[in-house]
Design a binder for these strands. Structure first.
Lengths: 464, 464
DNA sequence: TCATTTGTGACTAAACATTTC
DNA sequence: AGAAATGTTTAGTCACAAATG
């Protein structure tokens, strides 16, 4: 029997000892998982300290450590030495954001598309390609990482962003998320840690969870992640990599100034991290923003996987992203590409290459930028107090909200008003953050009129 | 100090205690990895028993367990209770088979392509599609699991193999390997076990390794995996899934008779395994072989992920595979599809759909079957003693060899004769098997003449 | 600043399961 | 059939490190 009685002690979770079967730690972890899934332990709940629960159940406290560990690697809970163990914000549900569950009665400001109006221009280019080129050479297994001239076209596209590399350092993947999956698969192991912004790309959170890679949230300011905080966490924990979107962070719209890139690069080099630089927004930033200068790849060419998708800038339906990397990662990346994709469709890569080389890609990107400018002007008209920060041409905005209601309830209420938006909790990489936001996609409505209707509804439902 | 002195004891591996740093188990695992990679411990070497090495190093024996475990999950060694721990056959190198490292001085009988001569027929279809259809609807993010009419076309194609399902149970992935990656990611966890044939699809071994999923080799006979052996292993170990290619196993060319499918299905149901049925060769078997009847999906519709790629039957460069699954897996599969691919290019899926609905796909498949028949006849002429077993139309053959040389040396010797083939060790899912083979691809040479040259060279170099 | 709270990681101990002979 | 060899699994001990107040 335990020495102390806990009957009057406020423990947030009191599993019934009699219901536990051996092995204890597994049975306990399963119980915990059920109680979290069942809503008995809502996100943010502080679990009993290991020693306290051990005392209560009359077992050794490292048995609790092990049970908690199982749930932690599943992403259900997180632990902070000195503070305790807490139920994770996204424990109860998948946060994956996708386009499938489209409710047609609803204006979609949730999923970030890419002003699909531009696809008219792409359709004609597809016809041109198929009429004139040697299709047969695109229809076989050859060149799994991309045909040389497709890589050349990609390098030409990326040269505008400051990328300089040889074709043997480039490979073609099927979009940015696919490239991220490949990168995690190739270079990381279960249990590895990757530093990320406190709010980060939801689907990156999901794939990390699937690979059992732990995300370490690093605080940031208006210029992005804070180098000192990164340095500190690296000294504290064994961190293996870092994920950044310096051109325009998703979801915060933060644009990283060159000085900050340099400071972070120094810390990354010092701790020998692998940098995953997702630069799909480079086309919105390079040549537009005074302080763009160079991608971080240029500062750390030997430790960076640079990923440049054409989904946002050129066409979302042609699944093409370029990956640029140093020789030391080459073999592992290319093996992973093969194991995940075999190859990316050369037909898609050819069309994108044709668009790039003919100059149509630039025209399309320019068109999207104009649409982005108008969409952001509309947003500023409806939310003047919330504009002026972050990237001015972002395809989405990060809107502070006052509501402290649970995230699911906020989203649900918006749905009832006829719009879909996502709450900041979906983007949390770790422990909760005080401030709450909505991510408002500007690039997904079917027209500017529909976007305006959506923004108007959003404004009314927030401030009514 | 250890009680016994081992100086005169024949231990295959004697790491220097003084070179170990704490944590001991990690340092020991690293040492072991280096010594395997460095060739000091060749494949098959029996490592010292845990207790013996522990005694030698004067540490607790579970410290050795942990060190060995690290190397085991990396696929470097394998352990058999009662027998000992051994260096894995493929420890020293990656076994991934891909098309990139093509040496043009060499006739490729290694990688299995799909008689790419047929792509002339596909090229024209691509032009037809892009001329007439509404391309714009194919170029956006909509319908990540596939447009409804693409799914319908897939179901129509698969109905010839006995698949009956609704569109909500189908999704489109980017080829069979991509579908397998998605399946492992969606339904399995690190540490789970999957039953496979003793010789199995190399790239499946690789992706399992990447996901830290353990493969359990099950012995088989001329009709495929043995149900009793599967049953026994399931009783012994906690096995989560099973991977089968019943229509024509890669690499063994075994075609599973319907009775065997039924017996295996009973065992699978009894132990509640998830069946991953890779049926890319169905087009070679359904309607051709008397005993095809139905895919295993029909026997176990509630526990099967049925994967049907069009790469071998229609066109390898259009990366399309259909996945069919029950409702209980739907959400997990579709989330994983999104996280790995976002979507498969609708342009590719449209072209394949058009080929299917117009009847051209059947014509192409028929053409490939004719080429396969001729290729197999050629093979039989050069290797009469080795033909007559397995699938008569297989795109590759499984040739027994007498050589007991190391696999790498055998492959190297063939390269020097101007042909690339793969040794059976690349396909080993677990411990070694006595019999040795070469996998000889018949579908990869650029013409029948080149294939004949390759087979002739192979014959000479084997029997010279 | 320092003691307390709380989590982490490495190693040990012991019971257990399978294979071999 | 049973003892010995060999790997597996669970849980306990202990030193340590970070956060809190």
């Amino acid at each position: 029997m335990p020495i102390n009685s806990f009957e009057n002690y406020p423990m947030s979770w009191r599993p019934d000892k009699n219901e536990l079967t051996r092995p204890l730690y597994q049975s306990l972890a399963m119980r915990l998982e059920q109680d979290i899934a069942g809503g008995l332990l809502p996100p943010g709940t502080k679990l009993p300290p290991q020693r306290e629960l051990a005392d209560f159940l009359d077992v050794n406290f490292t048995t609790i450590t092990r049970a908690y560990k199982i749930c932690e690697t599943k992403g259900l809970i997180y632990a902070i030495t000195g503070s305790g163990t807490f139920v994770a914000p996204n424990a109860a549900r998948s946060v994956t954001i996708s386009k499938d569950s489209v409710d047609l009665d609803c204006i979609d400001l949730g999923f970030v598309a890419s002003f699909e109006q531009s696809n008219r221009l792409v359709a004609q280019a597809v016809r041109n390609v198929t009429e004139k080129c040697d299709l047969e050479s695109l229809l076989n297994y050859n060149h799994p990482t991309g045909l040389p001239h497709h890589k050349m076209a990609g390098l030409s596209w990326m040269s505008a962003f400051g990328i300089q590399a040889g074709t043997e350092q480039v490979a073609i993947a099927s979009g940015a998320l696919n490239a991220l999956t490949i990168t995690l698969m190739a270079l990381f192991e279960p249990g590895n840690r990757i530093a990320v912004d406190a709010f980060t790309f939801t689907n990156f959170i999901e794939i990390s969870k699937m690979f059992r890679i732990q995300l370490v949230p690093i605080p940031g300011d208006a210029n992005g992640m804070l180098p000192e905080e990164l340095d500190q966490q690296c000294r504290l924990l064994d961190i293996h990599g870092i994920f950044l979107m310096p051109s325009c962070s998703n979801p915060t719209t933060v644009m990283m100034p060159f000085a900050r890139k340099q400071q972070l690069a120094a810390v990354i080099r010092k701790h020998q991290l692998i940098l995953i630089e997702d630069d799909m927004h480079a086309f919105l930033t390079a040549g537009m923003m005074d302080d763009y200068r160079q991608p971080m790849y240029r500062l750390l060419p030997d430790r960076t996987i640079y990923i440049c998708s054409t989904s946002k800038s050129i066409c979302s339906g042609l699944r093409v992203a370029y990956m640029v990397y140093s020789d030391i990662y080459k073999e592992r990346i290319e093996t992973a590409i093969y194991n995940v994709n075999v190859k990316t469709s050369s037909l898609d890569a050819e069309i994108v290459a044709e668009l790039i080389l003919s100059g149509q890609a630039s025209a399309i990107a320019e068109h999207k930028k104009q649409l982005a400018r108008r969409a952001n002007e509309l947003y500023a008209a409806y939310f003047p107090h919330a504009s002026g920060i972050g990237h001015p041409l972002s395809f989405y905005r990060w809107l502070p909200i006052a509501s402290r209601e649970p995230a699911a309830r906020v989203e649900e209420a918006m749905r009832e008003h006829g719009i879909r938006v996502y709450h900041s909790e979906r983007f949390l990489s770790g422990a909760g953050v005080q401030d709450k936001f909505l991510r408002v996609a500007l690039a997904s409505a079917n027209s500017m009129e529909e976007l305006e209707r959506g923004l108007s509804l959003l404004q009314k439902s927030l401030y009514a």
